[in-house]
């Protein structure tokens, strides 16, 4: 089996006919031509990229002008339940405080 593998490795492969070589070579030349045209356009690639960055920057600037920033409120940051419970606790503590004061004055 190994001998057969060794023999097969030395197989005389057929060369590609000239006309195929010419056809493929022509394809290579056409591809090179396309590439040259791509990089020598009226507006060069670097200009395209530069314009893209400029538009991106302008977009961000415009966005920040258009979107309103909400005013800061410490209560607005807390959820509604927390605000109410806070109020309830404070009113209760006031009540206790006044009761205590009344008791003391009654004495």
């Amino acid at each position: 089996m190994k001998d057969l593998e060794k023999i097969l490795k030395k197989a005389p492969c057929r060369d590609v006919p000239d006309r195929v070589g010419r056809k493929v070579e022509m394809e290579f030349q056409q591809a090179e031509e396309k590439r040259r045209v791509f990089f020598s356009r009226p507006i060069p690639l670097w200009a395209h990229i530069g314009i893209c960055f400029l538009c991106l920057y302008a977009g961000f600037a415009f966005h920040s002008l258009m979107v309103e920033k909400p005013g800061y409120s410490p209560l607005a940051d807390k959820p509604e339940e927390t605000q109410l419970s806070g109020l309830a606790v404070s009113s209760e503590s006031y009540k206790l405080f006044f009761d205590e004061m009344n008791n003391r004055s009654g004495r």
């Binding site: 492969c13 057929r14 060369d15 590609v16 006919p17 006309r19 195929v20 070589g21 493929v24 394809e27």
Partner: peptide
């Protein structure tokens, strides 16, 4: 790899024109 590709294409088709077109 041109020789290897041509031999491979020939082994699949056993037809010269098909092998040439396949490579192209």
């Amino acid at each position: 790899n041109k020789k290897a590709l041509y031999t491979y294409a020939l082994s699949l088709t056993r037809n010269r024109e098909s092998a040439e077109d396949a490579m192209h």
